[in-house]
C-alpha cells in the first residue's frame, strides 16, 4: 500500500526514465543509455545538445515509438516499456502532443483537419477536446487554439496547408499538439526556423496554453538562449551516455 504522500509524489511526476538502454534494431553501431530522468506535472524542461547526440532517439523513447531493450519508461504512472507496440501507439495518441522542427503538416487536408488529426486515433482525447470546445464543435476548438497561438486570420484557418508560411505552420503544429489537452508535449526544435522575435512570441503563446491545462513540456534544442523560458535545463551529454560501437 502506498501512503498519501507517496501517491502525491507519484502524481507530480508525469515521466520517469530509469536505467534505460536502447539500440536501434539492425543498427548495432549506436547505443544509448539513460540513468535517470524525470519530469514533473506542469514542468518545462529544455534539453540542450547538438544533433546526433541521441536526441531523436530520446524523443522516440519518450513518445513510445520505440521501446528500450532494458529499463523503464514510466509515463503517467504506466511503464510503457512493457506495453505492446499497439498499446504504446494508443498511449501516445491519448497523452502526448508532438511538434517537429519543420514539415509538421500533412500536405493534404485543411488546416483544421491537421489540427484534429490526433483525435482520430484517441477517442478519450477527442472527448476531452469536445468537452472544452466552444459549442461542442471540434472545428471551433481547433479555431480557438489556432487564434490563441496567434493564427488569427480566418481565411488562413479555413484554408489549405500549402498557403501557410513556416511560422504559421509551426503554430498549426502546436495547436495539433495541444488539442484535447495531452499531459505531455514533446517538441523537437520547434522554433529553429523562426527569427528571434517570432521565437519569443511563439514560446509565450505556447506556454500560456500549457499553463491553462497544467501540461508538461520537454523541448529539445541546441539554442542556449532559449534557456530563460524554461523551469529547468538539462544538457544531453549529462543525461545520455552513447556508445558508438560494440
Amino acid at each position: 500500500m502506498l501512503d498519501k504522500s507517496d501517491t502525491a509524489e507519484k502524481m507530480e511526476t508525469v515521466a520517469r526514465l530509469r536505467d534505460v538502454a536502447f539500440a536501434w534494431p539492425g543498427r548495432s553501431s549506436f547505443s544509448l543509455g539513460i540513468k535517470e530522468f524525470s519530469l514533473k506535472r506542469g514542468e518545462r524542461v529544455l534539453l540542450l545538445g547538438p544533433s546526433g547526440g541521441g536526441k531523436s532517439t530520446l524523443l522516440n523513447l519518450l513518445a513510445g515509438v520505440v521501446a528500450p531493450q532494458r529499463g523503464s519508461v514510466e509515463l503517467l504512472g504506466a511503464d510503457i516499456a512493457i506495453l505492446s507496440n499497439a498499446s504504446r501507439d494508443r498511449f501516445r495518441a491519448e497523452h502526448l502532443g508532438i511538434v517537429f522542427q519543420m514539415f509538421n503538416l500533412l500536405p493534404y487536408g485543411s488546416v483544421v483537419d491537421n489540427v484534429l488529426l490526433p483525435l482520430s486515433f484517441a477517442p478519450k482525447r477527442r472527448q476531452r477536446a469536445v468537452a472544452s470546445a466552444p459549442g461542442d464543435s471540434l472545428e471551433a476548438e481547433a479555431g480557438r487554439l489556432l487564434r490563441a497561438l496567434g493564427l488569427e486570420d480566418n481565411d488562413l484557418i479555413n484554408g489549405a496547408v500549402g498557403t501557410l508560411s513556416v511560422g504559421q505552420q509551426q503554430r498549426v503544429a502546436a495547436a495539433r499538439a495541444l488539442i484535447g489537452s495531452p499531459e505531455i508535449v514533446l517538441a523537437d526544435e520547434p522554433t529553429s526556423a523562426l527569427d528571434r522575435d517570432r521565437q519569443e512570441k511563439f514560446l509565450d503563446l505556447l506556454f500560456a496554453q500549457l499553463s491553462q491545462t497544467n501540461s508538461s513540456m520537454i523541448m529539445v534544442s541546441h539554442d542556449e538562449t532559449l534557456a530563460t523560458h524554461f523551469d529547468r535545463v538539462c544538457r544531453l551529454e549529462d543525461l545520455i551516455s552513447t556508445g558508438r560501437d560494440k
Binding site: A86, D89, F103, P118, S120, F121, A122, R176
Partner: peptide
Amino acid sequence: REMAILRSVGAG
C-alpha cells in the same frame, strides 16, 4: 515525413 507525422499522432 507524412508517415512520421502520422506516427507522431498515434498511428501504428
